[in-house]
Amino acid sequence: MCVNYRPPTPEQFGTLGAFSDLPADWRWPEETWKDYAAPILRSAGDGRPRACLASYGMVPRRAIAPGIKPFDTMNARAESLGERRSFAPAWRRLQLCAVPMAWFYEPCYESGRAVRHAIGMRDEPLFFVAGLWRDWPEADGSVQFSFTQITINADEHPLMRRMHKPDDEKRSLVILPHDEVDGWLACTDTGMARSFLRHFPAQRMRDWPAPAASRKVLESSPNLELF
């Protein structure tokens, strides 16, 4: 499943609705990993999407109690959204979000070893992925946000079934067509929301080898973590 992706640059947001008036001080890394800050669109209960910075992973590391084995919540399986304690409350409350990105990364083993591939769109520079968000009240009275991405089985998807180890279950992020983003965020029940959890056409996607950036480059990026 996806644990790393390339978010848009601030300059790319000018034509994306709620992102068009970004605060001047918004900054985020060029690659998004667990607990890194990244921009999302979230449902806000008043019919209008809200842009915010949120931490990647529904339960940030700082929120895991001492003595509890660390666990990952960057991806939420569609099949168990209503069952997993980390995701079920947000799912039932329809705290839906759309995660903008230029591409995401997956390992491809077709050469016999893991080669990091980027996966994006053929004809569009940006796209959105379906997700969930939640808030985290702070001691000073402020509120921070976190998010997860929703995944579905991809055993039959022509592109996504090529990713990960041969014996692993194939999974894919839920890519939202641009004209369905508002509808996803405005869902009024979980049945309606589930109708959006389907595959994006492989012929409109592309992949290419994308070696990882050096650790020094990643560590030099500003504001790596939101919390």
Rank of each mutant, 00 (worst) to 15 (best):
206 R>C: 13
215 R>E: 13
194 R>P: 06
213 A>L: 08
210 A>N: 03
212 A>D: 06
185 L>H: 06
207 D>L: 02
197 L>I: 09
183 G>R: 13
214 S>F: 04
202 A>M: 15
206 R>M: 12
216 K>I: 01
183 G>L: 05
177 P>G: 09
214 S>H: 07
216 K>R: 04
197 L>K: 11
186 A>R: 14
193 A>G: 13
203 Q>A: 08
185 L>I: 06
209 P>F: 12
208 W>D: 00
195 S>V: 05
214 S>P: 07
180 E>M: 15
184 W>V: 09
191 G>T: 15
182 D>H: 11
201 P>Q: 01
212 A>P: 01
217 V>F: 13
200 F>H: 12
217 V>W: 11
209 P>A: 09
182 D>R: 11
182 D>L: 12
177 P>C: 09
184 W>C: 08
206 R>Y: 02
205 M>K: 04
205 M>D: 06
203 Q>I: 01
198 R>A: 10
197 L>T: 10
198 R>K: 13
200 F>G: 05
213 A>R: 11
201 P>V: 03
185 L>P: 07
202 A>F: 11
185 L>R: 03
203 Q>D: 14
218 L>E: 00
202 A>S: 15
178 H>Q: 10
218 L>Q: 02
190 T>R: 13
201 P>S: 03
201 P>N: 05
178 H>G: 05
182 D>V: 08
198 R>L: 02
195 S>Q: 13
196 F>W: 14
213 A>T: 01
188 T>A: 10
187 C>E: 12
208 W>C: 00
188 T>C: 12
189 D>F: 06
217 V>M: 08
182 D>N: 11
197 L>P: 11
203 Q>H: 09
182 D>T: 11
192 M>I: 10
180 E>Q: 15
216 K>P: 00
202 A>T: 13
179 D>P: 12
197 L>W: 10
215 R>V: 14
181 V>W: 05
200 F>W: 10
198 R>D: 05
201 P>T: 06
191 G>M: 12
179 D>H: 14
205 M>V: 02
203 Q>S: 03
195 S>L: 08
218 L>M: 01
188 T>S: 08
179 D>V: 01
182 D>E: 14
196 F>V: 14
211 P>A: 07
216 K>L: 00
178 H>D: 12
213 A>F: 02
199 H>N: 11
177 P>W: 07
188 T>P: 04
217 V>A: 15
214 S>W: 00
188 T>N: 06
192 M>S: 14
189 D>K: 07
176 L>R: 09
200 F>L: 02
182 D>P: 04
176 L>F: 09
208 W>A: 01
203 Q>F: 03
216 K>Y: 00
186 A>W: 03
183 G>A: 15
201 P>A: 02
203 Q>E: 12
209 P>R: 09
211 P>R: 09
183 G>F: 04
217 V>Q: 14
188 T>W: 02
199 H>V: 04
216 K>D: 12
203 Q>T: 03
180 E>D: 15
208 W>F: 02
218 L>K: 02
218 L>V: 02
192 M>Q: 15
188 T>L: 10
178 H>I: 01
